[in-house]
């Protein structure tokens, strides 16, 4: 089954040679798109206002799917740096760090899976694994690093971490759904 698939992939026309510069510029552009999309945020009902949904992980995931985990991680880096430079980060550097680790955990896992299994099923599996790892990584980091850095004492951590886990799950699923729908429409354009 797997060998048949890889044989079919080899028969398909190879994508044109990609120069490093082309990848670099696409990464930069996707980072800029991600930053622009941060303004398309809205409040998810039932969550406190400092947890807002925004679709800025969609470009990160598209970058990871189209150009591999390293490119995806770089898009996340560009996005987080822009976020910091713009002064949109209301929590000094903590928000930037949280933003970066969220995206990294999501995109690296998702695009690693997709790189191994380059099919629709692989994309869905990858997105699922990405959401799972993002939620898990953020639960641990929120508990040990970010929330304590905000000054939340140990006794108050558990309920807040529970809220953020739920929030990250919802956000991750929404972003996965969007990426899946958008990536399908985009894919003819991506192979250059």
């Amino acid at each position: 089954m797997l060998s048949a698939r890889s044989a079919r992939e080899q028969a398909a026309p190879r994508p044109k040679a990609t120069s490093a510069l082309r990848v670099l510029i696409r990464v930069a552009m996707l980072g800029a798109v991600a930053f622009v999309l941060m303004y398309a945020e809205f409040i998810l009902p039932g969550f406190p206002t400092f947890l807002q949904y925004d679709p800025s992980d969609v470009p990160t995931l598209i970058g990871g799917f189209a150009m591999g985990p390293v490119a995806g991680a770089l898009v996340a880096g560009v996005k987080a740096t822009l976020f910091f430079l713009s002064g949109k980060d209301e929590a000094g550097a903590i928000g930037t760090a949280a933003n970066l680790t969220t995206s990294l955990a999501f995109v690296i896992t998702a695009s690693l899976v997709y790189a191994r299994l380059h099919t629709k099923r692989g994309a869905l599996l990858g997105l699922g694994a990405g959401v799972a790892s993002m939620v898990a990584v953020m639960a641990v980091l929120n508990y040990y690093a970010f929330l304590p850095a905000y000054g939340v004492p140990a006794e108050g951590l558990i309920p807040l971490v529970k809220t953020t886990v739920l929030f990250n799950l919802v956000k991750g699923l929404l972003n996965s759904g969007l990426t899946f729908l958008v990536y399908k429409k985009m894919s003819p354009l991506l192979h250059l």
Binding site: L21, I25, R26, M29, P59, I62, L174, L178, V182, L189
Partner: peptide, 30 residues
């Protein structure tokens, strides 16, 4: 929220197309 997220698709697709076109034009220029 699901509806609102879905409503972003008609924004996302053209935005990505335009971003990729600009990226490749810039790459060629450079």
């Amino acid at each position: 929220p699901i509806r609102r997220a879905r409503s972003l698709i008609p924004l996302l697709v053209p935005l990505f197309v335009s971003a990729f076109r600009r990226a490749d034009e810039l790459a060629t220029a450079m």
